[in-house]
Every structure is written in C-alpha cells, then in structure tokens.
C-alpha cells in the first residue's frame, strides 16, 4: 500500500476540469473517506453529497475511475490503480458544482414513467390480500429494493444517446407497479413507458444490471415491460 493516494477530482460545472490532490492512505479507506478528507483537510470549497455513509440512502453516488458507484461502499483497495483515483460527478446528469449532479430530471422521469402508486380502494374497504407466493408479488419483490441512487441511470448508454429516455430506475419502478395487484393505473402506465423514450429503446446492454449496487436487474424489468407493452398494443389497449 502506498503512503499516499493521488486523486483527480472534478471541480466546477460542466466546463470545469480535474484537479489533483494527495490524500494519505488508510486501512479500509472508502472513496467517500477520500473525498471527505479533501473537503475537510485540503479544500473546504469542494462540493459533494452524502448522508448515511452505510449504503442506505443512495446520495453519495459518483463516477469513480470511469464507473458509477456508491462512494461509501467502494473501498479504495478495489478501485485505485497504481495509487491513483479519479472522482467525477455522475454521468448523464447536469453538473451543479464539483461532484454534485442535478437529480431533478432523474426523478421527474420516475413521475413521467407512471411511478406513482394508484390505488382504487378507500380506508373503508378490506385490506388487499397479496400472497407472498404469487408470481406477480415475486416479480415486484425482485425490483422493489431500489433506493434511487441513479447509478444505473449514469451507467446507461441509451440515456447518453437519447436524453429523453426514461432510464433503468424509472422503468424498474414502473415494472414493480405493473406487478402490484393493488394498483389500478396500469393502462396509463403502459402508455407512459411505451415509445421512443420508453422501454422499447433499451438495447439490453445490461450496464444498469452490472452496476446496480443493490444487485437488482432493471434489464429484466424492462424486458417484462416490453412484453406487457407489446401485448397491450396488439390488443388495441395502448
């Protein structure tokens, strides 16, 4: 282990540049530890985002040596090459400043993909009973643990090519709701996720699935949406 780490960090907005810092190496050091050291000891003007530090909130995602990752759960040992590290804001999102990406478009797309639960029962109705063993429940379970960190969105090459593309996280969310037996909004939701900006544009590169820190498979969810949308179109329901 080298005594120090040379770290190139993105500074400024989209027109910014990398600046290099030297950070002492420590045992079990995470990339977030490195960024925090720079901000606390070397340059207090550095802007970055984090909250929980333990992989629960999803707010510390950045591009580390070219790949999107949660910095809090990424050990320097695993990613540093020759004692060097490069930290940049998430790709496919506008840069506000330094390592902080503007997440608005990312979350707006969840809404555009019909990501809101639409129930048709009131408090006076019986509880919905969904068997944990049902196939649909299983499919919803497979995607439900997403915490909206935008790592998949940043990894997606289709988003890079087509800025209107809803992206893996929003489509994964839509897929969990398509499989929610209590939800009554599927006709509108399938319409929302069809078309040029929706699931049909996915090239199945699987970068989202490879990078997802929760080991989810948005690719599988998007494939499910493609089938659902195709069936709806053939039935004239789209």
């Amino acid at each position: 282990m080298n005594a120090t780490l040379k770290v190139r960090v993105w500074r400024g907005d989209a027109a910014g540049a990398f600046r290099e810092y030297e950070v002492p190496r420590r045992e079990s050091q995470t990339v977030l530890d490195v960024v925090s050291h720079i901000q606390r000891a070397l340059d207090p003007t550095l802007a970055y985002r984090f909250a929980c530090r333990v992989g629960m909130c999803g707010s510390c995602a950045m591009t580390v040596n070219g790949a999107p990752r949660w910095t809090c759960r990424t050990h320097v040992d695993r990613v540093a090459r020759g004692g060097r590290l490069e930290v940049a804001p998430l790709r496919n999102l506008p840069v506000i400043r330094d390592l902080v990406a503007d997440m608005r478009e990312f979350f707006d797309k969840w809404a555009r993909a019909g990501g809101q639960f639409k129930g048709d029962r009131s408090r006076h109705d019986e509880f919905a009973r969904v068997s944990p063993q049902s196939e649909k429940r299983g499919l919803a379970d497979a995607g439900i643990e997403c915490i909206g960190c935008a790592v998949c969105y940043s990894a997606c090459d289709v988003v890079a090519r087509n800025p209107d593309y809803l992206g893996p996280a929003a489509l994964n969310r839509a897929w969990t709701l398509v499989n929610d037996e209590r939800d009554a909004g599927n006709a509108d939701r399938l319409r929302a996720v069809a078309g040029d900006a929706g699931c049909l544009s996915c090239h199945t590169h699987m970068s989202c699935t490879e990078r997802c820190p929760k080991a989810l498979s948005p690719t599988a969810g998007i494939a499910g949406l493609k089938r659902a949308v195709a069936v709806a179109a053939l039935r004239g329901e789209l």
């Binding site: 319409r191 069809a194 078309g195 040029d196 929706g198 049909l200 493609k226 949308v229 195709a230 709806a232 179109a233 053939l234 004239g236 789209l238």
Partner: peptide, 12 residues
C-alpha cells in the same frame, strides 16, 4: 407517431 404504432413496429 403514436405509442401504439411505435410498439407495433417494435413487434414487427
């Protein structure tokens, strides 16, 4: 192009 047309093209 409507969503339905786009989807039917995808199926085709």
């Amino acid at each position: 192009m409507t969503r339905r047309t786009e989807t039917l093209l995808w199926v085709a």
